[in-house]
Amino acid sequence: MKPFLKSFLRVLEWLLPLAGFLVIWQSLSTWLDLPAFIFPSLDVVWTRFTQSLLNGSLLYHGSITLIEIMLGLLIGSLAATFLGYRIARSPRLERALSPYLVASQAIPIVAIAPLLVIWLGPGMSSKVFICSLIVFFPILVNTVVGVRAVPVALHDLMHSLRASRWQILWKLEIPAALPVFLGGLRIGATLSVIGAVVGELVGADRGLGFLVNVGRGQYDTALVFVAVFTLISLALGLYGIVAWIEHQTLGWQEWRRGSL
């Protein structure tokens, strides 16, 4: 088959479910014929989308949320990686901290988000904090598991070569732990989007979560859909970036094919 045709079919394969989804949506909305504030038809959503894109509000609120997500992801994953590495190398630290770390997972983030917004204010910092919090645990666990899984025999090899602590970190521990770590980052990237929206829904005057609130309050359901789809694209984009990093760095893993 011609390579052009092949890639064309690839895209088609990928677009088909989306097209199906849109067709079902549109036929449902014409068939049910509900008022737009309950179930808007596709073209209403589309109009709302272009409208908010043109007046700049979508870009504004979207970029606020994106910044919160990215900052939260950055801070959360840095903290989790650092602590995870220390825990992986120190059984004592693990014994001391693990009950609390696990317990922290039992706290529903939705329940404490209002508190955090009260403490840190309705601005971006409370959302960044919520994102970091929600991202922290999966990345921590994956860092611990990844560092622990470094084969002892390879440690022996590095020691027999009289490698320094830094060399062991860079040439052995980081590359060996990378696959599992990136798996954690993937989960973290999508969770971070949820964290930001939860924070904004609880209390904010900016961001996509705020836009959802506005749409809901004004019975502007099309706007809610626009905000939700933007959030989905953000999550997809972040996921794609992590997947791309994996693809670039983990080419040696044979099973790493496909996009999930």
Partner: peptide, 28 residues
């Protein structure tokens, strides 16, 4: 200076053949 071959080949799976062989030189 010690060169060691283990019971299993013990190569780093993320390094190519050449990069695996280079490792001791990188460390030194």
């Amino acid at each position: 200076r010690i060169g060691m071959v283990f019971q299993q080949a013990n190569l780093m799976p993320w390094r190519t053949v050449l990069e695996n062989i280079m490792l001791p030189l990188e460390v030194t």
